[in-house]
Nucleic acid binder design. Structure first.
Lengths: 352, 352
DNA sequence: CTGAAAGCGCTTACAG
DNA sequence: CTGAAAGCGCTTACAG
C-alpha cells in the first residue's frame, strides 16, 4: 500500500499532527523557544506538544537540525600523527585532555581526522587539493612539524582554525594559543641569578621555531637586565645533541648553570656531568626551557618550564568557539597563557 | 547586492554549474557511482566534475548528505567517559588504539561523541532525547557500565553499532566483538592443574556481566574435565573486595591456587599473603582472569588472561564496516577473538 | 499568538 | 547516458 511505511521514525510533522498544531510550533516548543523572545505557543499548547512527543517517542533528527541550522556541531582536531597509540610520553596527549574537556563543555562533538592520509605515512590537510577539515565547523590543529604551505592555504580559505602553538605565516594571520615562554624563561633566569649563578649558557638546537625564539629572547632579556649575570652566552647544538665534552669545556669557561632549550638535551648534559664524576646540582646546575610530557619519573626531575598543555587545549577550543560565533569568522585572534615552572632537583645555589 | 555571498562554502550546485552538468551527476561522480551499476557520466564528464570540485574546493556537507541518506565516512566512537584524561591505566585506551588504526585504514574519520552529556556527569546516547550518534555513519561503543535500555532503543532504531564486549539484550540482537574468555580461562586452569594444583577457588564479584559468566563457565568446565583437580569452588566477593582473613581460611581448606575474576582482587589476595608472611607463588599461587590495562610495573606481575584490546578495537571497526556495506545493515554479527595469557610471576608448581 | 512556506545541501528514483 | 524534480526533517523568517 502506498504511503504505508510502518517502522519509520516519527517526525515533527507526526507530532504536529497528533498535537493539532503546525510543525513550526513543534520546533519552537521542543527547542524551548516558545516563551522567550519571539513568543510562540501557550502553555497548554506546549503541554500538548510535549505529550505528543512522549506518546510517539519522537527523537529529533540531528542531521536535519544541523542542515537547517547551518552548523554541524563538530569541532575537528587535526594532528599529524595518530593520537591514541600514545601514552603520556606523547606530545599530543596533554593538549587533547583540554580539548576534549572544552568541546564537551560546548556540547559539540570531536572529529579526529584519521582519514587525511594522502600517499605517505603522514597526514595532511589537503587531500586531492581539497580541504578535508571542512566536514567540521572549525578545527584545532596541533603538531610540531607542520606544513606551512598548507597552513597558509587554510588561512586564505577562511576556514576557522586555531593552532595550538605560536605560528607565524609569511602571508595571512593565524589564530593560535600559546604560552608566554619568554616571560617564564626570564623568570627562571632571574631565579638562577638569585642563586648566585653569574655565568650561564643557553644550549639551543638548530630549529628556529617561534617557541624557541621566544625562549631565547626571554633568556637574553633577563641576562641583560640582571646585574648579577656576567655572561649569558648561547651555544648551538646539532641534531646529535650536545657534543660529548661540551659540558667540561663550558665549566672550564666558568659556567655554573647550563640552560637547555630541549629537555632531552638537559638529560644529556646531566648524564655528562654524572659520567665526569660531577654532582648535579651541587657542582653544576642544569635547567631546561623545554618540557616534554614524557619525562619518566625515574629520571632526575629537571627544573624546567612547565607548559600548561591542558589549559592551552581548552583555550584553543574556546577561541575557536568565539571565531565561530562571530559572523564571517572575524579577525584572527591569539590567546597567550601564563607558563609555569617545574620545581625540579637540578637547580641549586652556585657552589661558592 | 542580491545573490552575492562571497565567502560561503561551495555546494554541489556550484560545482554542477561550473562543470556544466546537473547536480545529480555531481553527486554520482563524487560518490564514485558514475560507472558501476546505474551508469551515469562519461569519463570526460567525471573529469570535468572533479576539476570543478578541486577548483572550488568543494567538500560535501555532512548534515545534508546524512539527511538525504548518504554516507560521510565518519565512524563514531561512544564512550561513557572522557577518553583522553586517561593514561594507560585507562580502560578505554587499548581498544582505542585499535579503533583509530582500523578507521585510518578505512580512510574514514573518527568522531568522538563528547557532546552527549545530559545532566549528569556521565555521557548518554540519547542526550535530551536526541540520538547524537546519528551524525556518524555508524558507531563503536565501549564502556563497562552501559545503559541497556538505551542500547535496546539504539538497536531498535537500526542504527549500525558494534559494541566492544559481549552484550546480550533482552530484546533484539546486538553486534559485538569479544574475546574467548571461557577458552582462555580453561587453558589457564589446565595449566594450574599441570603444575599440580588440586584445589582451586574462584573469587568472583557480584557482577553478572557476560564476560564474568564466560570466565566462570570456562573455569567450571576445565575443573570438571581435568582429573587432577579435586575441587574447583567459587566464592563470591562483595564490593569491598576479599575479606581480610579470606586467604587464610582458603588455605586451611587446602586451596593452593587462588583464581580471581578481577585483577584488583588478585592484588588484594597477593597482599594478604605477603602480610601473613607467605610467599607468592612459592606458598600459594594467585592468578587473575581479569586483566586491567593499568597494572603498574612495580606490582607483582600477576599471571592472568590477556585481553587483546587493540585487536578487539580494530575488529570492531571492521565489523562495523561490513555492516555498513550490507544493504539495510544486515543481521547483527559477532566476532570472537582468541584471548591470550600473560605470563606473570604468581603461578608456580604446587609446593609438595 | 499561530500557520503555511521556503530553504538548508544533499541523494535517488524517474523521465527523457 | 543526462537532466529536472522530489524528498530527507528540520528551522526560521514571514504572513495572518
Amino acid at each position: 500500500m502506498a504511503g504505508v511505511r510502518p517502522s519509520r521514525r516519527p517526525t515533527q510533522a507526526d507530532v504536529a499532527r497528533l498535537a493539532g498544531v503546525s510543525p513550526g510550533v513543534v520546533s519552537a516548543v521542543i527547542n524551548g523557544r516558545h516563551d522567550g523572545g519571539v513568543i510562540r505557543a501557550s502553555a497548554e499548547t506546549a503541554q500538548r506538544v510535549m505529550d505528543a512527543v512522549r506518546k510517539l517517542g519522537y527523537v529529533p533528527n540531528v542531521a536535519a537540525r544541523n542542515l537547517a541550522g547551518g552548523r554541524n556541531n563538530i569541532i575537528g582536531v587535526f594532528t599529524y600523527e595518530a593520537v591514541f597509540p600514545t601514552d603520556q610520553l606523547n606530545f599530543y596527549h596533554g593538549f587533547l585532555i583540554g580539548v576534549e574537556e572544552a568541546v564537551e563543555e560546548l556540547d559539540a562533538n570531536l572529529l579526529l581526522f584519521t582519514g587525511s592520509r594522502g600517499s605517505g605515512r603522514r597526514r595532511s590537510i589537503y587531500k586531492n587539493g581539497v580541504n578535508s577539515l571542512q566536514v567540521a565547523d572549525g578545527a584545532i590543529m596541533l603538531g610540531q612539524d607542520e606544513d606551512r604551505q598548507e597552513l597558509a592555504a587554510l588561512v586564505a580559505s577562511r576556514f576557522p582554525v586555531v593552532y595550538i602553538g605560536h605560528r607565524e605565516l609569511p602571508a595571512g594571520e593565524l589564530s593560535y594559543v600559546t604560552a608566554d615562554y619568554a616571560e617564564a624563561t626570564a623568570r627562571l633566569v632571574h631565579r638562577c641569578a638569585e642563586l648566585g649563578h653569574q655565568r650561564l649558557v643557553l644550549l639551543r638546537g638548530d630549529d628556529d621555531a617561534e617557541s624557541v625564539l621566544a625562549r631565547q629572547s626571554g633568556y637574553f632579556t633577563a641576562c641583560q637586565e640582571n646585574s648579577v649575570i656576567e655572561s649569558g652566552a648561547v651555544h648551538r647544538v646539532g641534531a646529535d645533541g650536545p657534543a660529548p665534552e661540551l659540558l667540561r669545556s663550558l665549566l672550564d669557561q666558568g659556567v655554573t648553570c647550563v640552560v637547555t632549550d630541549d629537555a632531552s638535551h638537559a638529560e644529556s648534559v646531566y648524564r655528562q656531568a654524572i659520567d665526569s664524576g660531577l654532582r648535579v646540582p651541587d657542582d653544576v646546575s642544569v635547567v631546561s626551557l623545554g618540557d616534554y610530557a614524557g619525562m619518566r619519573p625515574a629520571d632526575p626531575s629537571i627544573t624546567s618550564l612547565l607548559t600548561p598543555r591542558r589549559e592551552m587545549g581548552a583555550a584553543a577550543v574556546r577561541l575557536l568557539a568565539e571565531l565561530l560565533a562571530t559572523p564571517e569568522g572575524g579577525k584572527p585572534r591569539q590567546t597567550i597563557l601564563a607558563c609555569g615552572l617545574r620545581e625540579g632537583e637540578t637547580l641549586a645555589p652556585r657552589r661558592s
